[in-house]
Each structure stands twice: as C-alpha cells, then as structure tokens.
C-alpha cells in the first residue's frame, strides 16, 4: 500500500474541534486544528487572476459551504485544495494549503499524492463510461496500483457504496455500466468512488446543480451523514442548500476587478441571520448576485 500521510489532529472529537474552529476559524487567523488551512492563496488562469489572497481554515468533521455569486472564484478555490487547478493549461497558484501539518504545495510535494488524500465530486456526474459500477468504485485503488486482494476489494466496494447510500439500489447490478444509472445515482456513485480512496477531506463542486429536486434531497441527506466521518467542503450557488447542509459557511465575492476574495467565514446560522459584513447581508437578502 502507498504510504498515507494522515494529518494530525484529525482524531479529536468533533465537538471539541468545532468549538476550537469557532473561536479561530475566521479569515484573519486560520486555526491550528483546522482540517484544511488555506493560506494566502491566489490563483490565475493564464494572465487573468481568479482569486486573490484567500486565507481560510476549514473545521474538521463537519460541512463547510462556500457560497457566492457565479464568477466569485469559489470553484477555483476548492480546486486549489486538491491541486486540480493546475491541471488547466496555463493555470497557476500562489500561497499554500495545509492538510493538517502537511504543506500540499511544499517543494517536492507530489500533486498526484495530494489528490489521493483529498476526494473530489464534480458538478456533473462523471462516472467512467467504460467501467461497471463495481469498477468505478474500485478505480482509485486499482489505478493507483495498490495491491488489494479480490476479497478486500469486494469489501471496499460494498462499504463505500453503502456509505454513499447507493448499495441497496445497485447491489444486483454491479457489473452494469455506470452510465446506465440515473443522474442522482451516478452522482452518488461518484461520491462512493471518491470515498473509496479514504480521503481526509471531500470537496464537492456544486454536486447537485445537474440533478432534480428529489436526487438533490438524497445527496444533501448523504452529505449530512458523511460529515461525521469526513471533512466536507461544498461549493454551492444555492443559499438554501448551504443553510440546509452546512455548519459553517464562507462567503466569497468578486470585486469590480473581477477577482474573487473571501468576505467572511462564520457559523452558517450566523451568516444567514446576522452576518458581520454588510456585503454578505446584501447577498443573502438578495440585493445582488
């Protein structure tokens, strides 16, 4: 098996860390106990800057939502966390991201390794079209060349399909192509695929934007369940969704220069009832965006 770097402080009780994060998880000072600390991250596409100097601590074992009008850089920000941003040709990142104590952008840090520690679920369900349901879930360990016995792999597939609340629907058709499932099932399959990598953090980039309301409801339910075992960051443009699933909410906004910046991070109820920044209030009361 590949060596896994496990961030310290991950095993603290959920309540204790939440409290700790509540005190210090503000943009000004990322908390030492945060699962992910984004430090002074700026990102560019070619010469166009997308986000500027974002500093943010993601509290562990809970759901953090990132909201903001489109073009505010929220997707770009989470793509910086698992070093997917640099996959786009010409894209570039400054600043750093720490997963526990591990500096993901340290010289010599391997983006491939980083991505195997952080899971990602995309806007549109994207199961591998040539693979069966089973192979989709097993894809991570298999393609990374980890040696897993057939029995262990069966267990892994079942466990993660259960975690993704998909097992009961697909247990009889594990050999079928992932593309034959419904949209909502495909998205849960993608969640199972990401979970099978056993990530410390699960990043979700508007995971419900391509789904109908019922499928959306099931995914939201799933997100709340999963929060007990994995730190989740969800990007959404849907404020109701953010208030339904998340405990913490970060609000981002693009300035007149078109560059996205973090406005504030706070408890979700705080953000939606009495935000400290007038711009947040303007946004959540629908005055712009």
């Amino acid at each position: 098996m590949r060596q896994r770097i496990r961030p310290e402080g991950q095993r603290m009780s959920a309540r204790a860390t939440t409290v700790a994060a509540a005190q210090t998880g503000r943009p000004e000072g990322p908390d030492a106990h945060a699962a992910v600390r984004i430090e002074h991250v700026s990102a560019w596409y070619g010469t166009r800057q997308a986000i500027d100097d974002v500093t943010l601590g993601i509290p562990p074992h809970t759901v953090t939502a990132i909201i903001g009008p489109s073009g505010c850089g929220k997707s770009t920000l989470i793509r910086c966390v698992d070093r997917m941003h640099e996959v786009t040709p010409g894209a570039r990142v400054e600043g750093t991201v720490r997963l526990g104590e591990v500096d993901l952008y340290a010289p010599g840090s391997d983006p491939v390794l980083v991505r195997s520690m952080v899971g990602m679920v995309f806007q549109k369900p994207n199961p591998f079209p040539t693979m069966s349901v089973y192979d989709n879930v097993a894809a991570g360990p298999r393609l990374r060349g980890e040696r897993v016995s057939r029995g262990d792999l069966d267990d892994l597939v079942e466990r993660n399909l259960r975690r993704a609340a998909l097992w009961d629907e697909v247990k009889g058709k594990l050999g079928r192509s992932g593309a034959t499932l419904s949209g909502g099932q495909q998205q849960r399959l993608c969640i199972a695929r990401a979970l099978a990598t056993d990530p410390a953090v699960l990043l979700m980039d508007e995971p419900c934007s391509a789904l109908d309301p019922i499928a959306t409801y099931r995914i939201e339910e799933l997100i709340r369940e999963l929060a007990a075992e994995v730190t989740i960051v969800i990007v959404t443009h849907n404020m109701q969704q953010a208030s339904r699933v998340s405990e913490w909410t970060a609000f981002m906004l693009a300035g007149d220069d078109g560059i996205g910046r973090l406005v504030e991070l706070d408890r979700t109820e705080q953000i939606f009832t009495k935000p400290s920044d007038p711009r947040t209030e303007a946004y959540i009361t629908g005055r712009f965006g």
Binding site: M117, M120, F122, K124, F128, T197
Partner: peptide, 13 residues
C-alpha cells in the same frame, strides 16, 4: 470531466 475525475482520485496522468 472524465479526465479530472481520474486525476482527482490521485491517479497519474
């Protein structure tokens, strides 16, 4: 998105 799904799993290019 298919490429990114694989890369995001920590699979080599």
């Amino acid at each position: 998105t298919i490429r990114e799904a694989s890369l995001a799993l920590g699979v080599h290019e």
